[in-house]
Amino acid sequence: MSFMEDPPITARAVDEDIAAYAPLVRSVAWRYAGRGADFEDLVQEGNLALIVLIPRCPDNR
């Protein structure tokens, strides 16, 4: 692997990032609950978005 290539993202790192952002997902879902969607549905959609987007984002640690 050359210095220009991104290091592979491990499943553990993805799981840690999802766990770190889970409180933010819940707080945003809590704000939007009752506006036509259930709290659980909003949390589920937020978690799905995290699962899709975290591997795509560069690792800025």
Rank of each mutant, 00 (worst) to 15 (best):
M1E: 09
M1D: 09
M1H: 09
M1N: 10
S2K: 04
S2Q: 04
S2Y: 06
F3K: 12
F3P: 03
F3T: 13
M4P: 00
D6E: 15
D6G: 04
D6R: 15
P7T: 05
P7S: 07
P8Q: 11
P8S: 10
P8A: 14
P8W: 02
P8D: 14
I9Q: 13
I9M: 15
T10C: 08
T10S: 15
A11F: 07
R12V: 08
R12Y: 05
R12K: 10
R12T: 10
A13K: 12
V14F: 01
E16F: 05
E16T: 08
I18F: 03
I18Y: 04
A20S: 02
Y21H: 12
Y21E: 13
A22N: 07
P23W: 02
P23Y: 02
L24D: 13
L24W: 07
V25N: 09
V25G: 08
R26H: 14
R26L: 07
R26T: 04
S27D: 10
S27L: 01
S27C: 01
V28C: 06
A29Y: 00
A29H: 00
W30Q: 14
W30E: 13
W30V: 00
R31D: 08
Y32Q: 09
G34W: 03
G34R: 04
G34P: 05
R35G: 12
R35I: 00
G36R: 04
G36E: 06
A37L: 03
D38Q: 11
D38A: 14
F39E: 04
E40G: 07
E40N: 10
D41L: 06
L42W: 01
V43R: 02
Q44A: 15
Q44N: 08
N47Y: 05
L48R: 13
I51R: 15
I51Q: 14
V52T: 12
L53I: 02
L53V: 01
P55Q: 04
R56W: 01
P58L: 06
P58Q: 09
D59V: 11
R61D: 11
